[in-house]
């Protein structure tokens, strides 16, 4: 997995690296989950909204399921067109 850590550091500061390290398992779980739901471009979404992927997998999955339900079957295309739709996963 090729994560552009330098870009994340630049945008979010050095602390993001520690967060990634501390929550590595959750991150991998969440990336896998989204991929298994049919969203191939997970890495780019992660680079845009890293904190959303560092959440506890249970919560992440709940939120993702809800978003997919709201957006419908074409959710992949809709998110690709407007990544801002993903912001709700990061928010509470």
């Amino acid at each position: 997995m090729n994560l552009k850590l330098e870009k994340l550091q630049e945008i979010y500061g050095n602390s993001i690296l520690k967060e990634l390290k501390d929550n590595k398992e959750d991150l991998l779980d969440n990336l896998d989950y989204l991929k298994n739901r049919g969203y191939d471009n997970v890495i780019e979404l992660f680079e845009l909204y890293p904190y959303s992927f560092l959440q506890d997998p249970t919560l992440f999955q709940e939120k993702v399921d809800e978003l997919i339900k709201k957006l419908g079957v074409e959710y992949v295309e809709k998110i690709e067109e407007n990544t801002g739709l993903w912001e709700c996963i990061e928010n509470e």
């Binding site: 471009n41 780019e44 979404l45 845009l48 998110i79 690709e80 067109e81 407007n82 990544t83 801002g84």
Partner: peptide, 10 residues
């Protein structure tokens, strides 16, 4: 503009 919200791929 929405272009700032599309994915890199798009």
């Amino acid at each position: 503009h929405p272009i700032f919200g599309v994915s890199k791929k798009e």
